[in-house]
Amino acid sequence: MALTKIQIVESIQSQTGFSKNNSLEIVENLLEIIKSTLASGEDVLISNFGKFCVREKKERRSRNPATGDEMMLAPRKVVTFKCSGKLKDKINE
């Protein structure tokens, strides 16, 4: 079973007393804050959890594995996650 947004919304509802719709709205607000921060190129650091980083990848040469054709990959930005030491310890307990 995977943890999904709806279950997170339900625990926020039970731990804050906000209605379900209200909790969902607040979670959507939170997600939007995280996404727009990363979209602006800024990292998001959550202490005791980890860090979401925006990294720039340089242009590089690659091959299409199906056809073997060589092509250039354009420079791009990707999001990476660095797990905090606390979270790592918790997972390995």
């Binding site: 943890l3 999904t4 625990s11 926020i12 804050t16 607040i26 939170l30």
Partner: peptide, 25 residues
């Protein structure tokens, strides 16, 4: 409280070995 519960939920799920899926993020 919301931010804490949000990330605690994810950390707890991972500690149980569960997957976490937040659409769009």
């Amino acid at each position: 409280r919301v931010v804490q519960v949000f990330f605690d939920n994810m950390a707890d799920a991972l500690a149980r070995g569960e997957r976490v899926e937040v659409r769009g993020l």
